[in-house]
């Protein structure tokens, strides 16, 4: 009884899975190229300058207004660069950019704009108590907002 049900369902589900995996296909490219690579590099730089600020918020590094200003400036500059690196058709090949960026461009651009504004606002933070809210605004309304909607899941475990 249990086995019959197992086999019956197994065949059905396997067929279903095969159909979906065939339909989704595969885009082979192993290395990032062109705009995908350029924007990835820009975002990596953003991350490298955001992480030290998060450390300050968590108290793992001392507050330093000069570093905040310098890092926020780089973040703003790199985000502006990155925002111009999503040309039509660059969702092909190795990238975590979702096709929705291009079907929903206005929303994508609006979040990018917000992120740049938040990064610029972060440049003016001159006291430790203002740092956490400013960092979280950028991280939440910039990074998170965009990645939630427009970034594919990783391809690894």
């Amino acid at each position: 009884m249990r086995n019959i049900a197992r086999i019956m369902l197994g065949i059905g589900m396997a067929g279903l899975l095969a159909a979906t995996s065939l339909a989704s296909g595969h885009e082979g490219a192993k290395e990032m190229t062109g705009p995908a690579k350029a924007r990835h590099d820009a975002m990596e730089t953003v991350k490298d300058h955001f992480v030290p600020l998060v450390k300050m918020v968590k108290g793992a590094a001392p507050f330093d207004a000069a570093t905040v200003k310098k890092n926020a400036e780089v973040i703003a500059k790199k985000l502006e660069e990155a925002s111009k690196l999503f040309p039509e058709g660059s969702d092909k090949g190795k990238t975590r950019a979702k096709p929705e960026i291009w079907t929903n461009r206005a929303e994508f651009d609006a979040i990018m704009k917000t992120a740049i504004e938040k990064a610029k606002a972060l440049m003016n933070v001159d006291s430790p108590d203002k740092l956490a809210p400013a960092v979280m605004e950028l991280g939440g309304k910039g990074c998170k907002a965009c990645h939630e909607k427009f970034r594919k899941p990783k391809d690894e475990m």
Binding site: K47, F50, V51, V54, V57, K58, R96, V135, M136, E137, G139, G140, C143, K144, H147, E148, R151, K152, P153, K154
Partner: peptide
Amino acid sequence: YGESLGYEDISSG
């Protein structure tokens, strides 16, 4: 806090 504190791996998907 998720990615508002830089935890970038828990936003997508």
